[in-house]
Design a protein around this nucleic acid. Structure first.
Lengths: 340, 340
DNA sequence: CAGTGATTTGCTCGCGCGTGCAAGAGTTTT
DNA sequence: AAAACTCTTGCACGCGCGAGCAAATCACTG
């Protein structure tokens, strides 16, 4: 059996059409499509039958306009060189969709300011805007908040000092301390910290935590360098230039990277450009546990954020059932591999 | 100076409010925000002034409902293990946004069928749905077309036999022939083709083209193997199992991969698991020119699709100004590196 | 300054559905 | 069997804006 009334599909079929066919009112039709609506089993079946015949589905645009809830969230991202973003996108879209939210993806790498993008999102009445990029300064966040009708501004996988935003992230301090302890336990004593953009407070968190921890333990502050983007290529170049003309393995015995994207570049530089071995000559650690970190070529010792739990946290924030104390204290897991 | 009337921002400000303040009608207000509307310079300035004071921006939701144009396109993706997707997402979102379209990202890796996702997209009245995943069979496309109100169904970076879809892709046949010629010219004579999911007609195109070309030249048909997803890890495992217990370099001198995602895994397998060198023992070619292909560790000889031109083509399709003959014949560029 | 055409402005009606209430139907209690 | 419920259904009104037309205004010309 094929769908009946196939010819009708060109014109938009509204709840009124279904109502006429099912012999009920339009409101009963729309009730039939609401999960917890007050409607009898009998008329729901009548409606659903008619709806299927006509190929009716509720119009979410009209629904959003009328109810002032769009069931869309806007994801702002500016950091497409970092493979971890693909993982985050996969996880977030899946969890959001499973819970009834659609995802609006906005590329903010072009925008000088995120506020334009946020303004645009607000024009669509998104229920929330989620920042998962890296270049958002707290200042730009502040101005961005000028764009209202964005009910919730959420910073994902990063801490934010801005009191008007909700931050969902793992406990970076605990995580970095765990990495530091691991490194110390392994006997490394001449670390180099490779950081990302200095505008990001996340990296401030990780870098500061590591440097502080090290200082507390050995009373010396390790060297650190940074790159402008979380981009393996930039990390590669930076490592090369940092060690140019020096005997790297005598200066440094481990490179602690702010995340795996940087670690990839660092490892490539160590092996290909400098001709050294990881971890024998110089060890490397990362953060995020991206898929490549587990590949045969890299095998990076890293820290896995509990992305699914964090995505679940985001859903709870959207539902308004979140426990705000827990949102910034997700606990991940150190993944020990061969790179350190 | 900070924004005046800050206190007003909590309530939604509509065109009516602006109209009252500017001393014009509501329709004049909305005209002021339309690029090519018939409105005098003077009243536009009046309106814009009032709008800025009140913090007004047009509501795209209401606009979409009234005009039946949402200015949204839906991107369907199921292939998050392929790093190339991140590049595509970056490019597409940027071009779309620059031309006035917002992007709805739908993760279809969970869905048994894409039609559910398409149905959902249609409920949002997207102007077009763009398939950039890999698992869409032409059969599923056919059933997916049952979900109407999706004005345009576009298959991006892949050919499609379905006449109801618009396919935007580079000329795979020309590209693969170029790769084949390159390989032949380099003197390789024992190729192995590593393909992706057999449901994808794109891979059919590339694989078939290569095998046919080879047969035409040497009257022998090379061996080929395949994996279920464009995932480096799967490619790694497949290559390992394929050569298990055999002296690989005697069987094969080049592995032609359907894309870079597979090439990454293949190279890792050759070097790490089999202890061989690329390209001296076994060469490798890819397709897509993902960022990692250019990294010091891989240096993959590959084929770069003209993504920006293709994204521009998508925009033209949306605008209705596309030259349909050209949509499937974008020409890319062979990028010669050290892997073959 | 009336007359003509070009431009600008206002307006009616509708996009498809949600909210909240009141009327109707169905069920239980005494 | 009437009263007292509960559940279900229908409805007026509104969400914010757009298409298309009619009225109003403007810019010239002779």
């Amino acid at each position: 059996m094929r769908e009946p009334d196939v010819d009708k599909r060109d014109e938009t079929v509204t709840a009124d059409d279904v109502a006429k066919r099912a012999g009920v009112s339009r409101w009963t039709v729309n009730r039939a499509f609401k999960k917890d609506a007050s409607i009898s089993q009998k008329s729901r079946e009548k409606v659903m039958g008619a709806a299927k015949q006509l190929g009716y589905v509720p119009d979410l645009l009209a629904s959003s306009l009328a109810s002032d809830r769009s069931n869309m969230v806007c994801l702002l991202i500016d950091d497409f060189a970092n493979p971890h973003k693909l993982v985050m996108l996969e996880r977030l879209t899946r969890f959001l969709r499973k819970n009834g939210w659609d995802t609006l993806l906005v590329n903010t790498s072009d925008e000088e300011d995120t506020s334009a993008a946020l303004l645009n999102a607000s024009q669509r009445r998104v229920d929330a805007a989620v920042l998962i990029g890296s270049q958002f300064t707290d200042r730009s966040l502040a101005t961005a908040l000028g764009a209202r009708r964005v009910r919730k501004l959420i910073v994902f996988a990063r801490t934010s000092e801005n009191p008007n935003t909700i931050s969902i992230c793992c406990d970076d301090r605990a995580a970095m301390n765990e990495i530091a302890n691991y490194i110390i336990g392994k006997g490394y004593r001449r670390p180099l910290f490779l950081a990302g953009p200095q505008t990001s407070s996340a990296h401030l968190g990780r870098k500061e935590t590591f440097l502080t921890k090290w200082h507390d333990t050995f009373s010396t502050t390790p060297e650190f360098i940074s790159v402008a983007r979380y981009d393996p290529q930039l990390a590669y170049d930076r490592i090369v230039s940092h060690f140019a003309g020096r005997t790297a393995q005598e200066i440094t015995d481990v490179i602690v990277c702010e995340n795996d994207a940087l670690a990839l570049g660092a490892m490539d530089a160590i092996r290909t450009e400098m001709g050294l071995r990881v971890p024998q000559d110089i060890a490397v650690t990362g953060f995020d546990d991206i898929p490549q970190a587990d590949s045969a070529n890299y095998r990076i010792t890293t820290y896995r954020q509990p992305l699914s739990a964090m995505a679940e946290g985001l859903v709870q924030v959207l539902k308004g059932t979140a426990d705000s104390d827990q949102l910034c204290h997700f606990i991940g897991k150190l993944v020990e591999r061969e790179s350190a």
